[in-house]
Design a protein around this nucleic acid. Sequence first.
DNA 1: TGGATGTGTTTGTGATCACGTTTCGCACCC
DNA 2: GGGTGCGAAACGTGATCACAAACACATCCA
Lengths: 215, 215
Amino acid sequence: MQGTLRSDVAVSAHDRVYRGLRTRIMHGQIAPGQALTLRGLGREFGVSMTPAREAVNRLVAEGALQMSSSGRVSTPELSNERIEELAALRALIEVELASRALPRAHIALIERLQTINASIADVVSNRDSVGYIRTNLEFHRTLYLRAQAPAMLAMAETVWLQLGPTMRALYGRLRRSEPPQYHRLIIAALNAGDEPGLRLAVRSDVTQGLRMLAG
Amino acid sequence: MQGTLRSDVAVSAHDRVYRGLRTRIMHGQIAPGQALTLRGLGREFGVSMTPAREAVNRLVAEGALQMSSSGRVSTPELSNERIEELAALRALIEVELASRALPRAHIALIERLQTINASIADVVSNRDSVGYIRTNLEFHRTLYLRAQAPAMLAMAETVWLQLGPTMRALYGRLRRSEPPQYHRLIIAALNAGDEPGLRLAVRSDVTQGLRMLAG
DNA sequence: TGGATGTGTTTGTGATCACGTTTCGCACCC
DNA sequence: GGGTGCGAAACGTGATCACAAACACATCCA
């Protein structure tokens, strides 16, 4: 389940390539600086160059891939300044999303978040960094979906997309052994209906990981 | 001058179409709901369907155009909820950009902003809504460029892009007769180095116009 | 008169191809 | 041994084409 919710009927070929690539990038399955070719992607997805080119161009437009002056595409290697910017954007947008989700957060949502959080412990113990990124994003997306703010959620996902390859490099380095502490604070603030606490917890959770990478 | 700064050498055909269309949409030269065709755009820009398709797909990816299930593209007609969301995003991001630009705002920048603001008075007296939108965005972009935060600026421009056709409908309706009052407050706050005042002024300026449209 | 039907036109999609450019490997020379 | 030059392979770009789906509009029947 990636992207803002969609019905999966009648997907075109370039959409298949786009969704497949997007998921890989967002989940950190591709290292920063990795090069991609249109013919290679076409072979891989069983299509011609045309749909591959469309998918790549969309991802370039979203900042998920960078294109050299000669047209070669690759996953970007982010500078520390850009990482700081993207982290700040995550903080801005996701704090707002969480705040908007708070009045709508029923008990069923909180239980779902706890379930996801528990499964994060599994992937952490398995040293599965891709699984960690995927499950972590699922935790955030599940919460933000309740905000009923699709444009904001799309913005947040665009930022995740840009950070995907870098997150791989980050979580691949610091082999953590426990689920993120701030997720518990987020759940607690949701339970208590504590908006300032929720904002702080989300901001901390979002900033925490990226700070040590850019620092 | 559109987009985050680029050297204009060796532009490909699809880039010409993309830039041209993007500028038109952002400046409100296309009404909401207006339909576009690949062959029509190709004729207009003197290229084949392939570059036109790439340009359109990029703009769809950025939310500047919407694509029906059958692949037909048109400028979006935004719901009030989405307008409110986009206005909130503008407020979040642009307040941050202004705040980051404040320590770097020298006297030359402030004078430039005053010049732009004066030329807004001209286009307003001429009932030129496209010119108004363009000059207004130039005012904001000039300020935000000083923030040295390209990722954030790109985010803000994406929001402007999504609001382009709607802004046309808005400023076409309320034929205003004076330049925006909050621009003066922004300049005053910059002069005084007053960060809270700057944040409030930017937030007010961004929210003001859109509020009466969604309300 | 109004709604369903059918047809001709227009549209997006994806494959293929030719062209010019870039890139990369490898032999060559200093 | 390391830098240099060259040629082949691979790449992106844009045009063109065949195809199927969607649309518009006139027609026909109830």
